[in-house]
């Protein structure tokens, strides 16, 4: 075997191993959903069943937690996205020596362990008589999720051609008109992506949430508590549903993107 073919084989082998590593746990988790066993496992296989979907549907606490997660995620979206955009716009205009400092300051929640953000949020707000709950969860999560939004918006903002801004002002637009008609449409794709990321980050967050959620429960906190009290394959059923929804959304997005690209290419070809 020549070294080139060996390389090709090695690469293929690596890719296969990588995908097995990535997806085998998910496949086993999904398979366990249909196992008629009290524990989420595939061995031994005690017969095929759909009853865990029924159990899941009947689990009121789980639905309550899912609803809370959605409320928190929407709250974080509404708080972190505007803050992230505003921060990105502000940092883009700052030219002083303070810029690296401000940048580091805003990114620091990303580097701080989530546990610490959770604890410090709780301690801080307790001074003002606010105790743990959905409200504090939104605040706690938004502190670091806003930094994600800022990063994504900044990445696009840095490619913005500032002469567009000058042209708009020169043609008589106010700063606000320039922002609304020129800059915001330009930033839109980054803002949408940042919104999706913010929502997902909030939805899956556990370690910060655990400290600030108080007597309320989000989905991650609920599942974690179940691990202690006894997990049933109903959790697997939930996991399977979440995976399917995610995959469907990703496919829908890709189809939409390809369609738009085709339209654009056709337009550029002048057809």
């Amino acid at each position: 075997m020549s070294s080139q073919r060996l390389m090709a084989f090695g690469l293929r082998f690596y890719v296969v191993v990588f995908f097995v590593y990535l997806f085998l746990p998910l496949l086993i988790m999904a398979a366990a959903t249909f196992n008629d066993s009290r524990f989420p496992t595939v061995t031994p296989w005690d017969g095929t069943t759909l009853r865990w979907f029924g159990e899941l549907a009947a689990d009121g606490g789980m639905w309550q937690a899912l609803g809370n997660s959605a409320i928190v995620a929407v709250g974080v979206l509404c708080l972190a996205v505007p803050i992230g955009i505003a921060t990105a716009l502000f940092l883009n205009t700052v030219s002083s020596r303070a810029k690296p400092f401000l940048y580091a300051l805003i990114l620091s929640p990303l580097l701080t362990p989530g546990v610490i953000i959770g604890i410090s949020t709780l301690i801080f707000w307790r001074q003002f008589g606010v105790s743990g709950g959905i409200f504090l969860t939104v605040l706690g999560q938004a502190t670091f999720i806003a930094a994600y939004v800022m990063l994504m918006v900044t990445a696009r903002l840095q490619r913005f051609d500032r002469t567009m801004e000058r042209a708009a002002l020169d043609l008589g637009a106010s700063q606000w008109q320039m922002f609304r008609r020129i800059l915001l449409p330009y930033l839109k794709p980054a803002i949408y992506s940042a919104g999706v990321i913010a929502f997902l980050q909030s939805f899956e967050n556990y370690n910060t949430t655990l400290f600030v959620v108080g007597y309320d429960t989000t989905l991650t906190v609920y599942i974690a508590s179940k691990v202690r009290t006894g997990l049933t394959p109903a959790v697997n059923a939930l996991g399977l549903i979440l995976i399917l929804v995610t995959v469907l959304l990703a496919i829908a997005y890709e189809v939409k993107r390809r369609r738009e690209e085709a339209v654009r290419i056709r337009a550029q070809a002048g057809v």
Binding site: D161, T163, M164, R166, A167, L169, D170, L171, G172, A173, S174
Partner: peptide, 15 residues
């Protein structure tokens, strides 16, 4: 200010 002047500019990169 720029947006109140009776001038209009054509930019090098057209913008």
């Amino acid at each position: 200010p720029v947006n109140r002047r009776p001038t209009a500019m054509i930019f090098q990169n057209l913008a």
